[in-house]
Design a protein around this nucleic acid. Structure first.
Lengths: 158, 158
DNA sequence: CTCTGTGCAAAGACTTTGCAAAGTA
DNA sequence: TACTTTGCAAAGTCTTTGCACAGAG
């Protein structure tokens, strides 16, 4: 944890940015909620617990800065809110997501999965792949169990 | 073209919706710009040429309706605007996109590519895949040619 | 006549920007 | 001092909603 903060601090410094208390608090929230795909608002509320005087604009600015530095990835599951996801240590590619259309849960897949597909795209379409976004929509394990007996009709948008 | 309008008309009727002139104009714009990934605003401006009296709200409502009927897919390339993409005839899966980070162009891939990956997700994670979104970010063919000699530094956000 | 659909304007949600004040090297 | 960062409030952008009116069956 401290080690990852240090690393981010160095990344900031290397571009002449500072790791201010507000930025550090923001990064800590992201580290403590790595699995959660927080929206800017979510981050703001959590950061406020550590640093009550922080402004929402600062959180937005910090998240944007971290995006530029590729410390976090900005993602969008189609609900009109940007979400922010910390890059894993040493991750070479952007991880994938499984969004459950029943309960809205979001799981992550770290495995690459796309290696072959990417070379196919490069060879067949002449497109030089730099990054990707892959999201599966479907029914998660626990909702499958429930749906066997129940006749749920709850759905999520998009 | 007329045949596809007819089909959509039937789909609407089957759910007790009508294909009003405004809705038809909207569908026609989508059909005529199938490759273009139009935003709601784009669609609005184009529909206005055919039906100047239409309101922006109607376009939004129509696009949402068409999304629900799965006539169009709502996508988001991370620029804060929803874009709308007509489903291809008989398409069983959502097609993929190649977004060029130099020039912003968006190309489509109709090939499935993910069949194997999906079964892997189903088997290994117990997640029942219903749909997917796959977007590659990178450099398109024509930008690659240019960048060989030029030292372009133009970038697109996210 | 009844119910659906429309246009307009207003409201809403999310995000960005301007600016003076505060902090840092 | 010179430069970066912050908080607040205001403005911006995209989208949805409320409502009276028009239209189809």
């Amino acid at each position: 944890m401290e080690h990852r903060i240090e690393k981010i601090k160095k990344q900031l410094h290397s571009q002449s940015y500072k790791l201010t208390p507000q930025r550090e608090a923001t990064v800590r929230v992201l580290l403590e909620n790595e699995e959660d795909h927080l929206s800017a608002e979510d981050v703001y509320l959590l950061v406020k617990e550590k640093a009550p005087e922080i402004g929402l604009a600062t959180v937005y600015r910090t998240l944007e800065l971290l995006s530029e530095l590729k410390v976090v990835d900005k993602i969008n599951f189609g609900d009109g809110v940007s979400r922010f996801d910390l890059r894993k240590e040493g991750a070479t590619h952007f991880h994938h997501h499984l969004v459950c259309i029943e309960c809205g849960s979001v799981a992550e897949i770290e495995e690459d999965l796309l290696g072959e597909v990417e070379s196919q795209v490069e060879n067949q379409w002449g497109f030089e792949v730099k990054d990707h976004r892959l999201t599966f929509h479907g029914i998660c394990k626990s909702c499958q169990k429930q749906t066997v007996t129940a006749t749920t009709t709850t759905h999520m948008e998009q």
